[in-house]
Design a protein around this nucleic acid. Structure first.
Lengths: 344, 344
DNA sequence: CTGAAAGCGCTAACAT
DNA sequence: ATGTTAGCGCTTTCAG
């Protein structure tokens, strides 16, 4: 028997078949016709490759061509329902197009983001799809300057001309609030975080504009991002509700806040559950089976993932060429359920 | 100014500094002492590297060393809460140890699994952590034969001597059932899928044994895996409940079944919600705020991830050496909540 | 039509 | 103590 380990390379194949590596390489890359390799030789090579189940070493290929066929999808937290669902869709599209996706979580932390980006640059990934932490504007600009494909997602930097796909947060928020208002809620709280990135600012703005438009008071609770899952966070919400007994509705700007908020309501204000209007950003299947079912601003995950990949693939095709950045703004959908119904 | 693009390699640095590539390489790899490079030269190189922000090309490094520092974590569906949470923990540990993780979803489909494995082998990943689909036993054996590190997760192949980390499904299931029984439920349904892998078989077996031990009747609904999220799946559950009006409790063997089950109960049997005993496999924060709160078999995610990575790292350290496979069986925890309380 | 050879960036055995 | 050099496996230019 042959030395298997040695045969698994172009060189080995060439030696075995008595042809040159060039010929093998051409055949492998479908350039047989173009380079006018004889039918016979082509077939011989193809058959042999089939026989030994040869697959080219992607590492070597990447080193040579400078393309790794890997793209990075950096999110806040891959275990967050919103991001993991996005990731799943992106995965499918990418694999279809011959790309692998490296997922990673930056926890919305600048240091971690920067480290990760550098790490992946060393690895020569072909592009970055990033849900950016607040302070990495310069790094993103640097990537673009280096002609490395970058697409931002969920939030972006207004000062930067970088491709991005986001939703119209302000409008989505405005609509959600208006919906509550039209259902007779008059004292609506906004529960949000101290994150000062575009997505959250937009949601806050939408709320403020809606309240102003209908001349209603604003009641905003801003929680530190760090408390997103802590007991402390729950306590702050509890306190806020106690101090504002007149509230008749609550709008949560992101899914982890909603979890905490619902927990607080259940624990400390059980009566409120059916009296208060409740709307949340980010949908979840479980909201359809909650009692009451929860009204949610549902982001178009499928569409976002598609646009993201479309934009990325376009950049990948021509990374060196300057192009006007694609700024894609999608619409979210308000899924009306029981929790925001008119109460008597 | 210097030609930046050219300087970003060992060769460039060596040229710039008038030393040899070897010296640079040694310094880079912390072998300065060992190879007795002079302090002065070492410092000069280090400083220069710092200055230009040089980072070695991992691709080239990998090609040379044969190690890519990438491990694969293949799960059923990365958007499934159970798997995405596992992934998040694994990600952290891996990065700490200098590894990146490529996540992918096989949808419990053999064809997809095999394709993915081959894809990643071409990419020379260092190891595989796999939640295997039912029919890839041979492929797993082949990987092991090739001395490629593999660790299975969540389920395994009893005929194969492969490292794995799983939970004691039978016992977890038995305990859950026993808990229901002790709370006076006498007609307990098991709602499961037709997946015939160890994890599901264990859960079924635990149920059967518990029912036998307490001389209670069994009521098993087995749903096709394909219907896991379809309307069809819901209809089957509805039908099952209609045809078995005596049921006083339901045990769902996996999280997507629970979602469907709760939906069905809410839609078609709203009274049952507070009368029936309900227990589910796989915990979810939302279960703590559901009404009633839902009793769940909670898998030790943190511990699973840690053991997985520990096992993988051990293999990685010495891939060529035969070793007795580590078969790690963890215990799940029953988190008792309102849904399984004694009803009157 | 096919082959020889350079080179992607890095490591490490071998030489000095 | 530092330099020379041979590859890792592949693509591609240039020569026949």
């Amino acid at each position: 028997m042959k030395n298997k380990s040695k045969r698994n390379s172009i060189k080995g194949i060439a030696a075995e078949l008595g042809v040159s590596v060039t010929t093998v390489s051409f055949v492998l890359n479908g350039k047989a016709k173009e380079k006018r390799i004889s039918e016979a030789v082509t077939k011989k090579i193809l058959d042999y490759i089939e026989l030994i189940g040869y697959r080219p070493n992607q590492l070597a290929q990447s080193l040579r061509t400078g393309k790794s066929k890997i793209i990075v999808f950096m999110v806040e937290d891959i275990s967050n329902h919103f991001f993991s669902r996005l990731a799943r869709i992106i995965e499918d599209i990418a694999y279809q197009k011959g790309y692998k996706v490296l997922f990673c979580s930056n926890e919305n932390d600048d240091k971690k983001s920067l480290e990760l980006i550098d790490l992946f640059k060393e690895r020569q990934v072909d592009g970055f799809m990033i849900v950016p932490s607040p302070g990495i504007q310069d790094k993103i600009a640097a990537l673009k300057a280096e002609k490395i494909p970058v697409v931002l997602c969920d939030r972006y930097f207004p000062d930067l001309d970088i491709d991005h796909v986001i939703i119209d947060n302000e409008k989505a928020s405005y609509c959600a609030c208006e919906h509550l208002i039209k259902n007779n809620f008059k004292n609506i709280a906004l529960i949000t975080t101290d994150v000062r990135q575009t997505q959250m600012l937009g949601r806050l703005e939408g709320y403020k504009k809606a309240m102003a438009a209908y001349q209603l008071p604003t009641n905003v609770l801003i929680l530190p991002y760090k408390e997103k899952t802590t007991l402390q966070g729950k306590e702050s919400i509890t306190k806020f509700f106690y101090e504002n007994p007149d509230l008749d509705a609550a709008f949560f700007t992101t899914n982890y806040l909603t979890k905490n908020g619902l927990a607080v309501i259940k624990e400390s204000f059980p009566n409120a559950l059916n009296k208060m209007g409740i709307v949340t950003f980010d949908d979840n299947e479980l909201f359809t089976i909650y009692t009451p079912t929860i009204t949610a601003v549902s982001q178009p995950l499928e569409e976002m993932a598609k646009e993201l990949m479309k934009t990325m693939l376009a950049l990948l095709k021509n990374p060196k060429v300057a192009h006007p950045p694609k700024k894609i703004v999608l619409k979210a959908k308000l899924v009306v359920r029981e929790s925001s119904k008119v109460k008597e």
